[in-house]
Nucleic acid binder design. Structure first.
Lengths: 181, 181
DNA sequence: GTAAATATGTCAACATGGCTGACGTAATTC
DNA sequence: GAATTACGTCAGCCATGTTGACATATTTAC
């Protein structure tokens, strides 16, 4: 395992992946560089509202699946309920998110965005969609689709089903629907 | 520009990008999910050493370009020298990084990894390379190459030259060389 | 119908890793 | 010789993650 890297001539493709070591490392580094810039636009907007990335994530995912439970959000974010509690409280206090008692299960506090919350979410998403579209236009639409598959396969196998479910549900209901099935 | 998004039927491809809104949002979310899992393996290893992601970044980039200056590292990480100073000091104190006075400019403290630093870097990189290779094998090598281009084009235009230079220099010198030209 | 499990909220304390501002030293450049 | 540059450091603040403990309401299981 430890000798995978050294025992290979530079420029040589490796196993089933068809990637050289250099290409693999390039992808590792591009994950850093792309992510670094990917979050920079929302960060600037958020700063104007006194919010951070944690608030953005909540706004995004709640807006994507209105009526989701707190536990579902925790499962996506992979943070503790205490960490979520802090930002969620702020978003509720400032009128961007509200909670509705579950009908079938009255312990649940189903999460929804207010009009202001949805507006902010759209505003945050705008530059990111532009960025993705720009990248897709430069690389070709097929490349973007390939990137989508590759990023999906970078997700840990144990988490893929959940991610696939999330993306697919979103693809059906979408933003336009704004409601759950 | 502002009306690109709303005036579009769901499932309809959009402009030059060739991506529907759903596909674009899927890519946004996959950046989150893939990155979340992408850093999870190193995080576990780092915890055993009492280090965090910030240490990982320093180890990685210094190991990638031994002899780089502090300022070059700051330009890559996009953090303040005070933030870097903290983790750099720890890495030096614990014997993973050392500094060498610049020959042509003796103000510079050129950064290098010790043997222990390089070993840790390799250990942290291992799971990430495996993850990338696994994803490439599942998606196809061509998809991974397309992903590479797309991620590159997600980088802000102003930063692309620096990123390209970095990746290309790395591709020439590579890890194997371990030295600067 | 009571007991256990679940969904959520909250308090307190702590760690990491960003940030700003200020200041110091050595070396280089003008 | 003065200004700039490369780097280090001290002090304090903020955002956001963590653990552990505990409370409350509701649902589920026996």
């Amino acid at each position: 395992m430890a000798d995978v890297i050294p025992a290979q001539a530079p420029g040589h493709s490796n196993g089933a992946s068809g990637l050289t070591d250099q290409e693999t490392v390039a992808l590792i580094e591009l994950m850093f560089f792309a992510y670094r810039d990917f979050v920079s636009d929302p960060d600037e907007i958020l700063a104007q509202f006194g919010f951070g990335r944690a608030h953005h994530r909540v706004l995004h995912f709640v807006g994507r699946d209105p009526g989701m439970t707190v536990q579902q959000l925790l499962d996506i974010l992979r943070i503790t309920k205490q960490s979520l509690g802090r930002v969620l409280k702020e978003l509720i206090d400032k009128g961007y998110v509200y909670q509705k008692e579950g009908e079938s299960d009255r312990r649940q506090r189903l999460l929804h965005l207010t009009a202001a919350g949805d507006a902010l979410r759209q505003r945050l998403m705008g530059p990111q969609m532009e960025r993705i579209r720009r990248a897709a236009a430069l690389s070709g639409g097929g490349a973007a689709q390939a990137c989508r598959r590759t990023l999906y396969n970078m997700v840990s196998p144990a988490n893929r089903a959940a991610v696939r479910d999330w993306i697919e549900r979103a693809s059906v209901l979408g933003d336009e629907a704004g409601k759950r099935g």
